[in-house]
Design a binder for these strands. Structure first.
Lengths: 243, 243
DNA sequence: GCCGATTTGTCCGTATGTATC
DNA sequence: CGATACATACGGACAAATCGG
């Protein structure tokens, strides 16, 4: 399955940068050179570079070149970056993940749930509570709300593995984007119980609330992800746009 | 000062979406139509649309069109999004901002500071502690480290206003991107004192650590921003890329 | 199921502007 | 000043997905 040309150039450059073939602050080969290297048009290499810019890997400087600003991160705690399933991030964080389903039910959104999740009242949903372990330590509690009409056939068995795997590979759904909000909230009794936490130690949780859309443009998921604060790390690269 | 053509199209569409001229889930005019509306090439409108996609305002669907997925947010707490100064975000959040400089000094980075900030050891820096008030309530403590060679002429007077204003309009520096990490950390005595917090209430802080680069590709700032958890909200839109 | 019209996605070549050195 | 490098913009070609007849 050959992806698009700019994607493969993007990946190739990304991999070279991660392998530190360019030192920090070094200039990459010029666009003109890359055009010859990859046998493509200038637009195509520019597109690949644009993706590296949004990743925070490089910076383009007009008149000078493209500068490498990538720095390898020390993975002390569980790092969250782009959209990925718990399974994917555990692998990326080089740790053993395991998931326990605490609750699996079908519900209809009432006004309260509608206000919280963004689904319309009356919508049929799956509500799932899951506990995620990393190296046998319970770190995250997820409260998932899935649109039943978009995610039909979900079972507790699937939920104990990777739901995204099922969505992408069995239902052939394409996940496109996710609007996320990070907040800090008081710890609940459920958090305390399942994550073995002591309020005298931490009395807060890091919470990621997200609304996720598929390629049909429908929001099919709302999730509240509650993380142990001592293992939480959320990464981001912001690009300044002109006023 | 007319910016580029795609920028003005982007802004125009963005403003129309925010003004809810398109309802949620409605399709925008086709690229072909927009080309005629704005008298430009297809690439140019596509570029404007691409920016709206990264903002999470719209979703493009091949064969169908561009769907509006923007939803106005309820501004209950202080929301952080793209790169902006405290002054800018206070205005956006429609509140009165005020800044108090707690500490202003020139230092040389030792190994400990170098490890924390990412500046090389031996680098000359400004270290500034600032307290940010919103509507006369102290909400944020900032620990700024600025590269002295890039940010010369900084004074406590400037720091009590907007440092970014000074950098952009007086030094004519262009801020490009910012690598940020959100974590949750234990409250310190400084936090407790200046933010009038009670550990029996919240014993944690929301912390944003950021490394910011200018258009020369040099990292000129490291900042640790400590927020009262009950007024903290960090927004993000993530776009899923093919594996 | 097929076909054609519409719409977005990818890619190319070229021209011109602007910043750096 | 000229050479190099990135930024913007245009126009065209073809592919891929969607939808209606």
């Amino acid at each position: 399955m050959p992806k698009s040309k700019y994607e493969s150039i993007y990946k190739d450059l990304k991999q070279k940068i991660e392998a530190e073939e360019f030192s920090y602050q070094e200039l990459l080969p010029s666009e003109h050179t890359l055009v010859q290297t990859y046998h493509c048009s200038r637009n195509t290499v520019r597109r690949a570079i644009a993706n590296l810019v949004t990743d925070g890997y490089v910076q383009t400087i007009q008149g000078k070149g493209v500068r490498n600003i990538f720095r390898p991160v020390e993975q002390t705690s569980y790092t969250i970056g782009s959209i990925e399933s718990f399974k994917e991030s555990s692998i990326r964080n080089r740790q053993n993940g395991r998931t326990e389903v605490l609750c699996f039910m079908e519900i209809t959104a009432d006004d309260k749930i509608a206000g919280k999740t963004g689904f319309a009242a009356g919508t049929e949903l799956y509500y799932i509570q899951r506990l995620h372990y990393l190296d046998e330590k319970p770190l995250i509690i997820n409260h998932n709300y899935f649109l039943k009409s978009a995610v039909c056939g979900l079972t507790p068995e699937i939920a104990s593995g990777s739901i995204y795997d099922y969505l992408e590979h069995t239902l052939h759904m394409t996940i496109v984007n996710s609007k996320r909000v990070v907040t800090v909230e008081k710890i609940t009794q459920i958090d305390e119980k399942y994550l073995h936490m002591d309020v005298r130690d931490y009395n807060c949780m890091a919470v990621i609330s997200s609304q996720t859309y598929n390629s049909d443009g429908v929001m099919f998921e709302f999730t509240q992800s509650r993380h142990r604060p001592d293992y939480f790390r959320f990464q981001d690269n912001a690009v300044r746009r002109p006023l």
